[in-house]
Nucleic acid binder design. Structure first.
Length: 592
DNA sequence: GCCGTTTTCGGCCCGACTGTTTTCAGTCG
């Protein structure tokens, strides 16, 4: 029996959380929220667990939430939530969703004014009635006014964007459906924006290679229809039959499934990877004759010879271009020039090139696992070194470590180290808070005892450009600061980047010998690809770091590697493609 | 709504900042 995805269930719980806020039940709201975020990253189906009565074994899920999940699996809905939804006026929803208005203020406004519509709320803003609400001043008024305005402009920004991690999960879900229900599927290939390494994705492209495209398309259409997913179907202009639909639920991103057979696989894949203009040019240059022989699956993501469309590029008299570089300016010209002299395009860095991990957290601060568990997970991934970089003490919210804690951690680390296999380096580090004035959270005599130091900003992120740039500059001049973590502090779809002047950042990183991070957390991906490319051009070494908070998230470096590849980075431009001994010799503390 | 051998009831990350007050509540990370 199939269950709704964890993503879907999490979104339902989030809606329950929102509605709990309306009735002032803030602790239940938090419980729903906690359950939702626990489920979202769970590797097993919570629906199956709930139906078996075992979901309560998970932290954050009790009898009540379990029964709601089971109800959702059974009936596809939760009666209580449906009722709440119908009872909730749009103006109420708007108020609670405004960033800067919390549960208290939005409830006070609602209780005092009771606008029956967004239009009425707008009137209340302009005629000053909003201002009469206790606790509402000019700033709050601005927040509401801006919120209404944004709502009016929404059609333009309605395109739904997914983080890479969400997009990958969605693709995996869809692929699961396809495998189980469409006959004669030979392989399923990830294409489109996701394959090209976009940090945000609004269209998922999936190539289905089938023995019989007519039969496969019919079965696929039926499956999608049965799920209510199919919104439209169009024939792709060039090479394949393409089914287009919208994902259900919260995400609502577009999906295109390209059905093809082995004879047309290369062209179909190139087209599905895109961008369209690039694919067209390649297809035209190749003579667009369908490839005779198809490569055999499975296709490793990056071996040029084995890529599904490698042959196509050859016939187009082009060196093969990695999907991540197909948006890059001048890619076709470079590939043509390389082909003329019988060369490949420069090799791009891949996650498999990374020999160690330089930014992760343990349960000494806000990580979920012991240092030991993190180390074993790193070893299992083939890493040669792992730096434990728990937060420093000014970040109390995540249990940042004081110098005394650091000393205790050191003793524990020594004990764990003794159990490690030969050749593996467990390093003691810190994610050091750069304080608002640019001073560091630990003095130098503490820092000099650590193996590896990532310095980052988590507070006062709205400083003006000059201040925040000076702040990071001061940190980079410290001889023990090895790397600047998530330099612009953006959170994709949630929070804009800081005003940091990245030109200055790069210039000083080169000058001081400080590495810059490509943080692989899917909602950060910071530095972004264009900035990382500029940094590499300036001779700055980048670190691709997972920022893992548990053993399962060390693999997030795949996302960071995708960004690095979009930036065109070679392995030698990434610091942690080196052994720890080599990397260590590049730390500025040994070079001065 | 969830959690727990120091609790089956009474707590729930905690400090800084901001905007609203006129000494502090609400929001955020």
């Amino acid at each position: 029996m199939e269950h709704p995805s964890n993503r879907e269930i999490a979104s339902v719980l989030e809606q329950l959380a929102e509605h709990s806020q309306f009735v002032g039940a803030r602790y239940p709201a938090r419980a729903y929220q906690r359950a939702a975020s626990a489920i979202a990253q769970l590797p097993v189906s919570v629906g199956a667990l709930a139906m078996a009565g075992r979901a309560t074994e998970l932290r954050g899920i009790g009898r009540s939430i379990q029964s709601r999940i089971a109800e959702y699996c059974d009936t596809g809905t939760i009666a209580e939530l449906e009722r709440l939804r119908e009872e909730t006026p749009p103006a109420r929803l708007l108020l609670t969703r405004l960033p800067g208005l919390g549960p208290k203020t939005s409830t006070v406004i609602w209780d005092t004014l009771r606008p029956t519509s967004i239009e009425e709320l707008e009137e209340m803003v302009s005629d000053g009635r909003l201002r009469t609400v206790r606790g509402v001043g000019p700033a709050t008024e601005d927040i509401v006014r801006a919120g209404i305005l944004e709502l009016e402009h929404e059609p333009e920004q309605l395109a739904v964007q997914l983080l890479r991690s969400q997009a990958q999960r969605a693709v995996a879900d869809i692929a699961g459906v396809l495998r189980g229900s469409v006959p004669g599927v030979l392989r399923i290939l990830e294409a489109g924006q996701l394959r090209r390494g976009f940090e945000l994705v609004d269209m998922l492209d999936i190539v289905v290679v089938a023995e019989d495209t007519v039969a496969a398309t019919a079965a696929l259409r039926e499956q999608l229809d049965a799920r209510g997913w199919l919104t439209s179907s169009e024939d792709a202009p060039i090479v394949d039959e393409c089914l287009t639909f919208a994902l259900d639920g919260l995400s609502g991103a577009g999906v295109r499934i390209h059905v093809t057979d082995t004879a047309h696989e290369a062209a179909s894949y190139a087209y599905a990877v895109g961008p369209v203009d690039h694919a067209r040019t390649v297809l035209e240059r190749s003579g667009a004759a369908p490839a005779a022989a198809a490569p055999t699956s499975p296709v490793p993501p990056d071996a040029p010879r084995a890529a599904p469309d490698a042959d196509l590029y050859r016939r187009a008299r082009l060196a093969w271009i990695a999907p991540e570089r197909r948006d890059a300016a001048g890619a076709l010209e470079a590939a043509s020039a390389a082909f003329a002299v019988n060369r490949d395009m420069p090799a791009l860095v891949a996650a498999a090139d990374l020999r160690g991990e330089l930014h992760c957290h343990s349960n000494w601060s806000d990580g979920r696992a012991t240092m030991e568990a993190m180390a074993h997970a790193a070893i299992a991934r083939g890493s040669e070194y792992l730096a434990i970089t728990d937060h420093s003490w000014s970040l109390r919210i995540v249990n940042g470590l004081a110098p005394a804690d650091l000393a205790a951690q050191w003793r524990e680390l020594e004990r764990v180290r003794a159990t490690m296999p030969d050749g593996f380096h467990l390093l003691q580090g810190t994610e050091l808070e750069i304080l608002p004035d640019g001073t560091l959270d630990f003095p130098d005599d503490v820092l000099e005892r650590l193996d590896w130091i990532v310095a980052s900003i988590h507070s006062r992120q709205r400083q003006p450009a000059e201040e925040i740039t000076r702040r990071i500059e001061r940190a980079m001049f410290n001889p023990y600061v090895d790397c600047i973590g998530h330099p612009t502090s953006r959170l994709l779809l949630r929070r804009p980047r800081t005003e940091l002047d990245t030109d200055r950042l790069i210039e000083l990183a080169a000058h001081t010998g400080t590495f810059l991070e490509i943080n692989s957390s899917p909602d950060r991906l910071d530095l972004d690809a264009p900035t990382a490319a500029r940094a590499a051009d300036a001779g700055v070494l980048l670190c691709i770091n997972s920022d893992a908070h548990g053993p399962n998230t060390l693999g997030l470096v795949e996302h960071g590697a995708a960004i690095a590849r979009r930036a065109g980075l070679r392995p030698d431009q990434v610091a942690n493609t080196r052994s720890w001994e080599q990397l260590r010799s590049l730390q500025k503390r040994w070079r001065a």
